[in-house]
């Protein structure tokens, strides 16, 4: 090890200086930086972002439901607010998050257990096509009721 290919004199021998092995990791930037990456990185980071977004939504949702404990006025007031176009647009964002995270999660579960490993990219594309169609139908329905 002392004759490493770095040709290092003692000044370059970071182990002798007691340095940690890998100080130059990319950090969480390596999760979100999709430049030069393929589909898999997009799936990875979108899964993370939709997951965190849905978790935030879960707690918002639970908070909003507390209006049911307040009484009929509070809840029915919220229902009419929720039918405004701005809220309905947010519903479409929510459905996107649910569909992406759910369908990609299905791929992760199957492939992560060693199933359809060699066709995993095709599986991803197929699930996303299905998701896009479902999102379109859901979006049309949401704005039809509004």
């Amino acid at each position: 090890m002392s004759e490493r290919a770095t040709g290092a004199g003692p000044g370059l021998d970071f182990r002798a200086r007691g340095e940690r092995v890998s100080p130059r990791r990319r950090g969480a930037w390596g999760w979100v930086d999709v430049r030069g990456r393929r589909l898999g990185q997009w799936a990875f980071i979108l899964n993370r972002l939709t997951g965190l977004g849905l978790l935030v939504y879960l707690f918002l949702h639970l908070g909003v439901l507390s209006m049911l404990a307040v009484g009929p006025g509070a809840w029915d007031g919220f229902v009419s607010t929720a039918l405004t176009p701005a809220f309905l647009a947010l519903d479409v964002v929510l459905i996107f998050g649910l569909l992406f995270h759910g369908l990609n999660g299905l791929r992760i579960t199957l492939v992560g257990l060693g199933l359809v490993v060699n066709r995993q990219q095709a599986l991803f594309v197929a699930l996303m096509v299905f998701g896009a169609i479902a999102l379109l139908i859901a979006g049309l329905r949401i704005f039809a009721v509004g």
């Binding site: 770095t6 290092a8 182990r15 092995v21 890998s22 130059r24």
Partner: peptide
Amino acid sequence: ANQRLVADLVTDMV
């Protein structure tokens, strides 16, 4: 990326 940088384009593979 994610390796210890020695110089320019060379990283330590340890």
